[in-house]
Design a protein around this nucleic acid. Structure first.
Length: 199
DNA sequence: ACAAGGATCCTCT
DNA sequence: GAGGATCCTTGTT
């Protein structure tokens, strides 16, 4: 297994769906905690499910910036959700990290997740945010720079599952049905498995 | 200034 | 399978 290095800024300067697929199997590292990404969703410009659909606001400003930065927002008043911003400055696009598998720092993750174990520990975007102890102040943090939260290379997945995104019933039908959710094959570390198909 | 609702999670049945 | 937690963001008045 080769050494994992931080992915370069150019990795993120592509469309969100492409980056989303390419994130499966990569690693997120914060200090001693390392998580392997197993499930993601892409949110695009001109997407009625995307937070950018009302234009640039204080909350979503990071989404409008250049790719490679974090966008963390508070959901339902209590869950911190981690997104990876993609594409060029001036368009709102990002990839939501929905699930992950623990690689290192399992004990720390369990402390942050109330002592849970097994897939329930990290299958869901709010759980990933909790496991990495993130909050909205992490928005704009550069994932390709050393320190804090980093995104590391590795072997990208050759195959994946895809399906509709979760929790966006308010969106237009064409966006609700779009296959913009991607997940690793053959792993229990994925949420809402029933609506996933091989891609 | 206000009301509505949300890219979820946990517990209980 | 259903409902409550919990509070910020957004669009509207």
């Amino acid at each position: 297994m080769g050494a994992r290095r931080r992915l370069p800024e150019s990795f993120y300067l592509r469309d969100a769906a492409t980056v989303a697929r390419d994130l499966i199997g990569r690693w997120l590292r914060r200090d001693s905690v390392i998580l392997e990404i197993t499930e993601v969703e892409a949110y695009l410009p001109d997407d009625s499910a995307c937070h950018g659909r009302f234009g640039r606001t204080a909350r979503n400003a990071a989404m409008w910036g250049p790719g490679g930065r974090a966008y963390v927002y508070l959901c339902y008043g209590l869950h911190d959700m981690l997104n990876v911003v993609t594409g060029p400055e001036g368009e709102a696009a990002a990839v939501l990290i929905r699930s992950a598998r623990p690689v290192a720092g399992l004990e720390e993750v369990q402390v942050r997740r109330g002592g849970k174990s097994g897939p329930v520990l990290l299958t869901g975007p709010g759980k990933v945010g909790a496991a990495l102890a993130l909050d909205p102040s992490w928005s704009h943090h550069a994932l390709f720079e050393r320190g804090g939260l980093e995104l590391l290379s590795g072997e990208p997945a050759e195959r994946w599952l895809h399906g509709p995104r979760v929790g966006i019933d308010y969106a237009a039908p064409v966006d609700r049905d779009a296959l913009l959710r991607f997940a690793a094959v053959d792993t229990p570390w994925v949420s809402h498995r029933k609506t996933l198909r091989s891609g």
